[in-house]
Amino acid sequence: MNAVTLSVHVSDIERLFREHNRALIAFLQCRLNSLSDAQEVAQEAYLRMLTMDDREQVDSLRGYLFKVAGNLAIDRLRKRKVRSDFAAVQSQDEPMDEYRPDHHAMAVEQVAGVRQALSELPAKTSQAFVMHVIEGRDFSHVAQTMKLSERMVRYHVANALARCRAYVDGKEGP
């Protein structure tokens, strides 16, 4: 495919937004595990597209938007990691904040369905899922800990995610 030099106009960005914003937000939420962060990063990505002054060689404006957004997401994850390492050091001596059983009841209710779903899955499947989704470990860390390939870890996580979603939907109504 021939690369063409595109001059980016506001109207192009508007069209990108109209046609692909929902997918962009979904993509970013998947990467960042936070809808509000996804929305912020998407805003920033559009802004980058508008202020792009070197008229970069791009064969697809959409591809370029997702690339810019993906890179911004990686930056944000990096900053978040520094913050959470710092917070972990700060909060080491802090007590847990639930002092009475009733403070705890809502969380128990929320988690109960997922716990039930996970307990019906093979142990490796639920462990990989909990380590990745709940503990926030990346696939390579989970693979190392569990002595599995990353591909197997991804398989287990996807399997558990689909099962938990189905289980929670069954309880909450679709």
């Binding site: 595990n33 639930e98 969380a107 997922v114 989704v133 938990c164």
Partner: peptide, 12 residues
């Protein structure tokens, strides 16, 4: 679902 589970309270 993943966001909800990734942001659970500490005890859960």
């Amino acid at each position: 679902l993943a966001e909800r589970l990734g942001t659970l309270d500490k005890v859960s």
